[in-house]
Simulated assay, not measured.
Amino acid sequence: MALDPTPTSDRLSDYLAADAVVDHGHPAIRSLAAALRPGGEDPVEAAKTAFLFVRDEVEHVIDADDPRVTWRASDVLRERVGICYAKAHLLAALLRAQGIPAGFCYQELSALHGLNAVYLHGKWSRLDARGNRTGAGGEFSLDVEKLAWPVDTARGERDHPEIHPAPAPVVVDFLMTAAPGPGWYEKGLPRTL
């Protein structure tokens, strides 16, 4: 069953802000955001194009068996690899660079899973650009939630309904202190907020 996502801030401007993680003022982010939205096209199409870019053109470290650790949106773009959190950082940066409010959401699966929410047509919709390999099935939809994985409450999994304007500190701390190398994500991956 789809969750009713709830923003933790009532100011949309908080979901457009840049910071050290969502560095959407970076020239590479700005350039790609402009290329993904030529001629000021419809914001829904622009959001879908950005979503598909992050989902399909940025490898998930587990699927790629990649030893690199990325956390800043511009680094994720440069390296074209990231774990779910890092991919969410890039998607938020690309959307915010286009003036589309975007936030961060989480699920507790076997570990904490990061995804986004986007504000379009007067409502929030969750999007999961994790990448559709190894059984994941995230699709772009503003009407019907199509996340990478459904939550299985019988297994103790749960959705967090909150939409945060900034990535969770536990996620940022984990990524900033992770040592690159094979299977780095297996060492201390956050389990909860």
Score class of each variant (00 low, 15 high):
4 D>M: 13
4 D>T: 15
4 D>A: 15
5 P>E: 00
6 T>G: 01
7 P>S: 00
8 T>E: 15
8 T>K: 09
10 D>V: 04
14 D>W: 03
15 Y>W: 11
15 Y>T: 01
15 Y>M: 06
16 L>Q: 02
16 L>R: 00
18 A>D: 05
18 A>L: 02
18 A>C: 06
19 D>R: 02
20 A>L: 13
21 V>D: 07
21 V>Y: 03
22 V>W: 01
23 D>E: 05
24 H>A: 03
25 G>D: 15
26 H>R: 06
28 A>Q: 14
28 A>N: 14
29 I>H: 04
33 A>C: 11
35 A>M: 09
36 L>V: 11
37 R>W: 01
38 P>L: 06
39 G>W: 11
43 P>Y: 07
45 E>V: 12
45 E>S: 13
49 T>H: 09
49 T>R: 14
49 T>P: 03
53 F>Y: 15
54 V>G: 12
56 D>M: 11
56 D>W: 11
58 V>P: 08
59 E>Y: 10
61 V>S: 08
62 I>F: 10
62 I>L: 10
65 D>E: 11
66 D>A: 03
67 P>D: 06
68 R>S: 10
68 R>A: 12
68 R>V: 02
69 V>T: 05
71 W>C: 12
74 S>A: 12
76 V>W: 02
77 L>A: 07
78 R>E: 14
79 E>S: 09
80 R>Y: 06
80 R>C: 06
81 V>K: 08
81 V>F: 01
82 G>D: 09
83 I>R: 01
83 I>M: 02
84 C>P: 12
84 C>K: 02
85 Y>C: 09
87 K>W: 05
87 K>F: 08
87 K>S: 04
91 L>C: 03
92 A>E: 02
93 A>T: 10
95 L>W: 03
97 A>I: 00
98 Q>E: 06
99 G>P: 01
100 I>R: 04
101 P>F: 08
102 A>P: 05
103 G>W: 00
106 Y>K: 07
107 Q>K: 12
107 Q>A: 12
107 Q>V: 01
110 S>M: 06
111 A>N: 13
113 H>W: 10
114 G>A: 15
118 V>S: 09
118 V>K: 09
121 H>L: 13
121 H>E: 15
122 G>M: 10
122 G>I: 07
123 K>W: 01
123 K>R: 15
124 W>I: 08
124 W>V: 05
125 S>C: 15
126 R>M: 13
127 L>V: 15
129 A>Y: 12
129 A>L: 05
132 N>V: 10
132 N>K: 08
132 N>T: 11
132 N>E: 09
137 G>N: 14
139 E>Q: 13
141 S>K: 08
143 D>G: 13
143 D>F: 10
143 D>V: 10
145 E>P: 14
146 K>H: 14
147 L>F: 13
148 A>R: 04
148 A>Y: 05
150 P>R: 14
151 V>Y: 07
154 A>H: 11
154 A>E: 12
157 E>L: 04
161 P>T: 06
161 P>A: 12
164 H>E: 08
164 H>M: 07
167 P>N: 02
169 P>A: 11
169 P>C: 08
169 P>D: 12
171 V>I: 12
171 V>W: 02
172 V>S: 00
173 D>V: 00
174 F>S: 00
174 F>R: 02
187 K>D: 07
191 R>D: 06
192 T>H: 10
193 L>G: 04
193 L>S: 04
